[in-house]
C-alpha cells in the first residue's frame, strides 16, 4: 500500500512537471508567434547599407550593398558595383527566414542578457525532418518583440550566430545592424594554381584559431518597406 502511494506520488510529479513543461513550451510558441506576427507586417523591403567582411584569410573592402526581401523567404544582397562575399547558407542574413519555419517546437531555455537587454532564450526545433535547420536558439526581447540574437545550427553549413541591433525601424522588427558570425574552414591554395612560389608566412596557433572564425557585418542606413518588389528581382 505504501509502495502504491509512492508510485502515485511519482506519477503525479511527472504529470505535473510534464504539464508545466508543455505549458512553458506553449508559452514560447505563443511568444515566437507574436514575434512572427510582428515581422509579417513587412511584406517586402529594399534596404541600403554597408557591408564589412571580416574573415582572416580574405582581404575585402567595405562596400555599399542593397538588400531585397520579399515574403516568405526571398532574399537577395547586391553589392553596388562590385563583388560580394557571403558565407554559404547565410545568404539570408535576416531573421525572417529563420522565423519563416512554420512547424516547430519552441522550448524555453531561461533568460540571458544580450547587449544589456534581458532576453528570453527560446530553443526552436523544426518538426520537419527535411528542414536544413537543426536547431535555432532565439534571444527574444519580450517587451519589444524583437529577436536580439539567434544561433542556428544547420545540416549543411554548420553553426551561425546572428546578432542584431535595432534603432529606426524597431516597429517593423527590422535591425539597423546585423552581425553574422560563422566558422570557416582552412584555406590554402596550391602554388600551381596561384603561380606564386613564395612560402607563405607561418601563423601562430592563436592566429590559426582566429582564422577559423568569420564575421559579416551589415549596417543598414535606410529601408523602403512594403512598396512591392517584382519576383524577377530574385532570379
Amino acid at each position: 500500500m505504501k509502495m502504491m502511494k509512492q508510485l502515485y506520488k511519482i506519477i503525479c510529479f511527472f504529470l505535473v512537471t510534464g504539464v508545466t513543461v508543455q505549458a512553458k513550451a506553449q508559452d514560447m510558441t505563443a511568444l515566437v508567434n507574436k514575434v512572427k506576427a510582428k515581422m509579417e507586417m513587412v511584406n517586402d523591403y529594399v534596404a541600403e547599407g554597408k557591408m564589412k567582411t571580416d574573415v582572416a584569410f580574405i582581404k575585402a573592402p567595405v562596400g555599399k550593398v542593397k538588400v531585397f526581401y520579399k515574403k516568405p523567404d526571398h532574399f537577395k544582397l547586391k553589392r553596388d558595383n562590385g563583388i560580394s562575399i557571403l558565407p554559404k547558407g547565410g545568404v539570408s542574413v535576416n531573421m525572417s527566414s529563420l522565423i519563416a519555419i512554420n512547424s516547430f517546437v519552441a522550448l524555453s531555455a531561461g533568460e540571458a542578457i544580450v547587449d544589456g537587454v534581458t532576453t528570453k532564450v527560446v530553443k526552436l526545433l523544426p518538426t520537419n525532418d527535411n528542414s536544413d535547420i537543426v536547431l535555432t536558439t532565439l534571444y527574444i526581447d519580450e517587451p519589444h518583440l524583437l529577436v536580439r540574437k539567434a544561433i542556428t545550427t544547420t545540416k549543411e553549413n554548420g553553426t551561425y550566430e546572428i546578432q542584431m541591433s535595432y534603432g529606426h525601424y524597431t516597429s517593423y522588427g527590422l535591425p539597423d545592424k546585423v552581425v553574422f558570425s560563422f566558422n570557416t574552414k582552412d584555406y590554402k591554395m596550391p602554388k600551381g594554381v596561384t603561380l606564386e612560389f613564395d612560402d607563405p608566412e607561418k601563423l601562430s596557433p592563436a592566429q590559426q584559431l582566429k582564422n577559423k572564425k568569420g564575421k559579416v557585418e551589415i549596417l543598414y542606413s535606410s529601408y523602403v518597406i512594403n512598396k512591392g518588389i517584382p519576383d524577377s528581382m530574385f532570379r
Partner: peptide, 17 residues
Amino acid sequence: TDDMFLLKNSYAVQIER
C-alpha cells in the same frame, strides 16, 4: 570591369574597381 578577386597561397584579396 569589376572588382578584382585574386587568390594567393594562403589568402584571397578583393581590390575595388
